[in-house]
Design a protein around this nucleic acid. Sequence first.
DNA 1: TAGATTGTTAATCGATTAACAATC
DNA 2: TAGATTGTTAATCGATTAACAATC
Lengths: 212, 212
Amino acid sequence: MTRLKRTKIPQSVVKRLTKYLTFVQGLRMSGVEWVSSQDVADALGMTSSTVRQDLSHIDFHGISKRGYETRGFHKVLAKVLGADTVWNMIVVGAGNLGKALALHEEFPRRGYNICGIFDNDPRKMGRKVGRFAVQDIRDMPRFISNGKIDVGIVAVPASAAQSVADMLIIARIRGILNMTLTHVVAPKHIVVIDSRIVANLFELSHAITAAR
Amino acid sequence: MTRLKRTKIPQSVVKRLTKYLTFVQGLRMSGVEWVSSQDVADALGMTSSTVRQDLSHIDFHGISKRGYETRGFHKVLAKVLGADTVWNMIVVGAGNLGKALALHEEFPRRGYNICGIFDNDPRKMGRKVGRFAVQDIRDMPRFISNGKIDVGIVAVPASAAQSVADMLIIARIRGILNMTLTHVVAPKHIVVIDSRIVANLFELSHAITAAR
DNA sequence: TAGATTGTTAATCGATTAACAATC
DNA sequence: TAGATTGTTAATCGATTAACAATC
């Protein structure tokens, strides 16, 4: 039974672990059984030193001359990232983005189950999004406590982001995926991760502009 | 006329500039005319030192005792991030996520215009996504060169990500927004920014798990 | 065995924070 | 003026890379 290490893994390392997970999963699907730190580094554009240093945060070991067994590698990465368990999520905001996320097959395929979608617009309530009917946001707190919901995805207009986050926090959600541009404030026992697509577009247009 | 500085701005700084832009835009909308580095830091959960250090990369200056004028601050951030110009984008992949992105009002509102959506599935071709008909991916290269397309959003299954990216690269796209989990390889004159929502979910479930 | 590759320590590099003189 | 706040230099902190002994 693989045990997690006590020490906190830096966020920079966690971000790379998500890349390793995807890469190693691909290798397994191709039937590759062993991979070296250099292989990983080459595929993902980094140094083998970084790969080995990152793995030192994890209770998993390679073998000299052979590298890492993909099976165990994949398994431990999934465990460390929480990708080996099932998570219950709700989507708040039934606009185009919220609806798409509620329908995104990739999430349940990976154990991130959508359990409901909420909005505050009465005209949207009851409308079907796949197998879900849009629910009144006022029913959200009860839904969270009844359904053991772990994660709330915030896909509302920026102006409503903080108040929706506050509702989620009061309802004792464990984590928030913030899809809005707004910075969301939360007590530190609640995890907030930003997934701000427009901010990524800013980064992109900056880099294009800056390239000469 | 505001001039951009010569030196390259570190990516860590650029990421924070996107937060400043959103925050300062909100201030302007509320009619606030001046903001101090401490105000920004408090709102976004960082130190005032970081804010001032970040601004040293930019050709914009505050005034002792008053801080920064929001109008100029907003303007220079928009300029540095390329948010003050119009960008032409296409979406590749007409699944739920691709369709939602093609419909996302936030993008054109901010100058990131969707110009078309492509897929390789003949059953999807011709179908309407808002005002767009899904086009054959084989017509993509010509569309890019004819339409002065700057950015390609890759919203296809992970297995197709690299080959789609290669098509975009050959067609001389300037930047790629990668929505898939896969690492995308590109020559260094092509900007690739990852916006991997599932990876953000991994980060989230890791953090929830790691919190004791 | 010989040599490839790990795991870890040490060196380097970069990013964040602290401190403070300049200044409005 | 007095004091708040900038801009920048220096100090600290953390992350990445290099190097190499251990080892399979």
